[in-house]
Computed example of a mutant assay.
Amino acid sequence: MTTGQLIFIFLAVASSRLCMVFSLRPLSGDHHCNREKLPSQKALRTDQFTVLINGYSESRIPILHTVTGIYSSSPSVAAVVVLWGNPKTPIKTLVQLAHNLSISSPGDAPISVIRQPSSSLNTRFLPRPWISTRAVLICDDDIEIGPKSNEFAFNIWRNNPEQLVGLFARSHEIDLTSRTWIYTVHPDRYSILLTKFMLMKTEYLYRYSCEGGESMANARLIVDAMRNCEDILMNFVAANKTGVGPVLFGAKRVRDWGDARNEGGRELTAAEEVAVGLSSRKKDHRKRRGDCIREFHRVLGKMALRYSYGKMVDSVGEQGLCEKGGKLVLCDQQFFK
């Protein structure tokens, strides 16, 4: 058994916070697309969702304690799983992380840490036989959202179960000068939701990873080559199935610890980029994501992305908060991922 095949789980027993169960078992990386090893859609529960947090940098472990605790406290969350994508992180560190997250969690939903079978961003969307819910939340390790907003998002998804539901929206567009697709942001429309927070049907994990034949295999290779754009490709997958765009919602409070607009934010060096996360954020980031849209269109044979308009809100207010002068204030809306 290799270190890349280990799964670490600490489960808190509801009757006692002092009684812990620790298990270590293989992660069957070779059978993700075997339908016989996956639960049927009818068997998946609809009253809760599973949280899949992308983890990579040990420097963000303190934030993980806060983020996982909030999700674990939500009554609609069945389980919280940190998918660790850094192959260089020692086993001892992950075991300790799983232990600490479990014993410090204020909620009832179990928290686990899994080392991914590879560092590919595509592994965020692998089907998992242990997912017991019809909905999954794909999110980053530096996004902190309040429990009430989690419940609000889940209620929106239950009314729109075929669509992606999220907090951070972007758009595709044709550049008339170069006659090519570009990645941008519009004040009145959007067609792409980011995996900073993306709630969706569990079935889409299988569609992304296992269906689509050679064209989807080539699209996933583009994600690996760019070390980016897995979120854009998932938007292609969902829009191709539904024929409509995603659903954007507003939250009362969202803390984006990775936002460069935070006071003291600066351009990361190449080494720091690798240390903090998998997704490439070079200066040509926007152009590269436009290149992804163009290449996905080419290999998939159609432009599946569809525009949506408006935002679902439970009250008036912006969702972006940044630290300035020691206080949390609304971020400048001009800068985007």
Results as ranks from 00 to 15, higher is better:
R266P: 00
L221H: 15
V237I: 11
F152H: 12
E144Y: 03
Y56H: 15
R25G: 04
T202C: 07
V165C: 06
I138R: 02
K37T: 13
F8Q: 01
F125N: 08
F335N: 01
H297S: 09
I114Q: 10
A98E: 01
E295A: 10
E230Q: 15
S308H: 04
G317P: 06
Y309V: 15
K241Q: 15
V247D: 00
L18V: 14
L176E: 13
M216N: 04
S279V: 14
G212V: 08
D175M: 13
L11H: 13
L97V: 04
S72N: 10
C33E: 09
L328K: 13
R124E: 01
K92Q: 09
D47C: 13
A43S: 15
Y206N: 06
M216G: 02
R134G: 04
S149K: 01
S132P: 04
Q163M: 10
Y183N: 12
P246M: 11
Q333A: 15
K337W: 06
E214R: 14
N54P: 00
I145E: 03
A271R: 11
A135T: 10
F8G: 00
C139L: 09
P187T: 08
G213W: 03
E230K: 07
K327M: 07
K302L: 14
K201C: 03
H65G: 05
A238G: 11
Q96W: 04
S215M: 11
S279F: 05
S57Q: 08
I61W: 02
Q333E: 12
A153D: 03
Y190C: 03
W157V: 01
E151W: 02
E272Q: 07
L24E: 10
A12R: 08
S132F: 08
R288S: 12
V276K: 06
L233Y: 05
P62S: 13
G85Q: 12
S171K: 09
C331F: 02
V185W: 02
S76L: 14
G212Y: 08
N150D: 09
K327R: 15
S40H: 11
S59C: 06
S102N: 05
I53W: 00
R253Q: 11
Q334K: 14
T133V: 12
R286M: 12
K337L: 03
G265L: 03
Y183R: 12
R25P: 00
M226S: 14
K42H: 14
D224R: 07
L101C: 07
L6Q: 07
M200E: 04
E36S: 14
P87R: 09
R170V: 09
D224L: 09
P110I: 03
G146L: 13
E273C: 08
C331A: 14
T202D: 02
N34G: 14
G265I: 04
L330V: 01
I114R: 09
V13A: 06
D224I: 08
V274H: 10
